[in-house]
Design a protein around this nucleic acid. Sequence first.
RNA 1: CGGUGAGUGGCGCAGUUUGGUAGCGCACUUGGUUUGGGUCCAAGGGGUCGCAGGUUCAAAUCCUGUCUCACCGACCA
Length: 568
Amino acid sequence: MRTSQYLLSTQKETPAEAEVISHQLMIRAGMIRKLASGLYTWLPSGLKVLNKVAAIVREEMDKAGAVEVLMPVVQPADLWEESGRWEEYGPELLRVKDRHSRDFVLGPTHEEVITALVRNEISSYKQLPINLYQIQTKFRDEVRPRFGIMRGREFTMKDAYSFHLDEESLAATYEKMYTAYSAIFTRLGLDFRAVIADSGAIGGSVSHEFHVLAASGEDDIAFSTESDYAANVEMAPAAKPETAASPSGETGETLAVKGETVSELAASAALSEAQMLRVTLVQGHQEEESSAESWVALVLRADHALNDVKAEKLPGVAVPLVKASDEKAKAILGCAAQFADATNLPVTTFVDYSAAAMADFVTGAGESGKLKTFANWSRVPEQADIRNVVAGDPSPDGQGVLEIKRGIEVGHIFQLGDKYSKAMNCGVLSESGKHQLLTMGCYGIGVSRIVAAAIEQNHDKFGVIWPDPIAPFKVALIPMNMHKSQRIKETAEALYDKLTGMGIDVLFDDRKERPGVMFNDMELIGIPHSIVIGERNLDNQQIEYKHRRTGEKQLLDIDAAADFIAAL
RNA sequence: CGGUGAGUGGCGCAGUUUGGUAGCGCACUUGGUUUGGGUCCAAGGGGUCGCAGGUUCAAAUCCUGUCUCACCGACCA
């Protein structure tokens, strides 16, 4: 491709709205343009990357025995009513009406459509198992789209759905997908981890997320320093301390403190948050007959964070978790939650294991602006694991301690079971001639998100540094002052033809620009390799090669250049 | 949905407090200059100041309403 015939659209200035580096660079390098919140146009070089990612995903899926289909973006509402998700899904599901006032949705995912398809197309156990996938546009009306393409409302996703007669078959395909996903992210050249996303009460892990490690990630992942244990922080269990501290017997005193938040209180009284308790009030289940609200108090060490997923599993706690407003907390506790006496609360109370193991701690004195010191549990409280693990906690598998890193979720594989096949009556005739419901797995990859994640992990102050497999172009051909020098023009044109003829993706910068402009643009776009043709080296029948990532330069004989590039 | 902030040529911004000819940088066009790291000079084109209403002789500026966008919290690939 020649830049003169291409849409390069690079820009010097960083748009004000772009917060994360991938978003900034995608706009500056001319990969995407925003149309509306969470909606982006893919410009040529962005699209080339997206297509390369999709091609790798497709190859590996095919290799793993999955079969490609393509389902509509617009889906009839009755399928969603059948699965129960018309009500269940919430406002993220964009609903539209057609000209006959019939309800449709813009597909955020395709379980309903694929289940309806399989229900009609597959009728015998002999056709199973089967794994169908597509690479297609999804629409989710996100509450808050952000970070550019990373969390857009419209995005490209690879979604696969497998159908099985039994759990063993499901587990086998799940395993295949796990392997395929690892192969995909390895080929993409990304530093990734597969993490446990749910080690549910059912036993065994039935879900894994694949995360690309990056400081800007939205998820916290806990790793063992010793073993290969890795889990989303939401899911990692915090161990119960083996021994509880014992009270010193010292008499506490009441402290007057200033501030609103617990950390302000701690600072004002020169206390460590690790010796303080934090009370959070959440909604309980409402009684069927009465509309009376019930509330549950959760007590943690003040330096620990409440884990919503764990809290939702407590008996009597409403799902999803609803935290009490300040006014509500005051009405129930008699004072703001941060001044409530955690050892003596008027509602059902769950104390986190590590908080329960404390002694001589600081908690509220039951009135505004007052804390009390050397407090202790008067009786053994109801305990549970309700906090997020922190770095240094013992690893749940007993090996080493945990370390926390940020990750960007780019893939998720899940053993679904019969949720959809049951609701939509999707089954086959078994060997014994009986109707049998199918069990399902589903496997997603955020194809467009991978593009952003790859940049988060691969950039420097000059711009993007694409891993070779997904670079929009493999090599940039940069002639110095081609418009003045006939022999540079001839050399560049000849090399361009040769490289193109070899099937190499080359971007030939034939603009009448100064060298600096070309260098900067090619680096910003992130082309992994470049060749500079200048008078200086041409006298020796040589050209210069430069590696984007390392900055390494070397001179090549003109005749050997094409083969050198091809071999990279 | 809650909290904060912002809407002025394609992009980044100033101007708004104290109403009075709409400005700067980048980008774009033309001419010249320069030529291995975003040259320099000159001339130019391009803006209903988010939208609607109001106040006023006069509104980017004041008032009211409204829409959009970004950032921080609960969901997700």
